[in-house]
Simulated assay, not measured.
Amino acid sequence: MKKDFQISYEYFKNAGELDDIEKELLDKAKQARENAYSPYSEFSVGCSVLLENGQIFTGNNQENAAFPSGLCAERTALFWISANFPEEKIKKIFVVGGPKEFSENNPPIPPCGACRQSLLEYETKQNENIDLYFSNMNDEVIKVKSIKDLLPFYFDATFL
């Protein structure tokens, strides 16, 4: 028997199509990207996270010569937030990435598989979907309403 997945997502051609909070999250993710430590891959990623209390926190990728000792932007932000605001719900996450040298041909950059799994853990923990946005440096944005949209055969605590 063959089955298919279908996901819904929103596409924004540029930042002008975003609302005010989305624009702020995009800007903060871009700013965080500027502070990324990516001397080996030359691929910088910034992430901004909106909590239910209205606070916004950021993270960026941090590489290490001893691969894979570095950490992605999304997990840098998530783990810090969880350590400092363990009960606060995450409402929105914005990811902006691409080569350090800007190229107009780069598509919106989604989270890697490890980050998708980590993001899913927090969505499951709070029992509430997280809006996830990912973008390129041209402000072209894709939005999904749940991490599960990017990880349909997900693994969570129900399997344990």
Rank of each mutant, 00 (worst) to 15 (best):
Q62R: 12
F85M: 06
Y40N: 12
L18V: 08
E17A: 15
E42Q: 13
Q126F: 04
C72T: 05
F5S: 09
E104W: 14
A36D: 01
N60Y: 04
D19R: 07
I93S: 11
S118G: 06
I93E: 03
N127L: 08
Q31E: 15
N14S: 15
N64H: 10
A114S: 13
F5I: 09
E22M: 04
V45L: 13
N136Y: 07
L71A: 08
A65P: 05
N138H: 10
Y122C: 06
I147G: 00
E101H: 09
S8C: 13
D139A: 11
E74N: 03
E123P: 01
K23S: 05
I81G: 07
V95N: 01
G113T: 14
L50S: 00
G54P: 05
L26Y: 09
L78H: 01
N84A: 15
K2R: 13
F5Y: 11
R33D: 05
K125E: 03
N60P: 05
L18W: 02
I7N: 05
S103G: 07
E128P: 08
C112T: 10
C115K: 01
S8D: 14
F155M: 14
E42M: 15
P107M: 04
L150I: 01
G98N: 00
A15W: 07
S82Y: 13
G113P: 12
E87C: 06
P107I: 06
E10N: 12
Q55C: 14
E87Q: 12
N61M: 10
I21T: 15
F67K: 11
W80D: 15
A66Y: 12
K143T: 02
D4G: 11
E22N: 06
E63K: 04
M1S: 11
F134R: 05
S118F: 13
Y122H: 12
D139H: 11
K91A: 06
Y154T: 06
F153K: 08
T124P: 02
W80T: 14
S82R: 15
S135T: 02
L18P: 01
L78E: 00
E87H: 10
F155G: 06
E123F: 03
P39F: 07
V144T: 03
L51W: 09
Y154E: 01
K13H: 14
C47S: 06
S48H: 03
W80F: 15
A73F: 00
P68K: 01
E123D: 03
T58R: 00
A73D: 03
K13I: 11
D19E: 07
E24Y: 09
S118L: 10
A29Y: 05
L18I: 05
C115F: 02
E34V: 09
P86A: 13
I109T: 09
N14Q: 11
I142Q: 06
L132Y: 00
P86T: 08
Q117W: 08
L120G: 00
A32C: 10
M1H: 10
E87G: 07
I147E: 05
L160R: 09
I90R: 03
A77Y: 04
L160T: 12
D4K: 14
K148V: 06
Y154H: 05
C112E: 05
P111F: 02
D4Y: 11
F67C: 13
K92L: 01
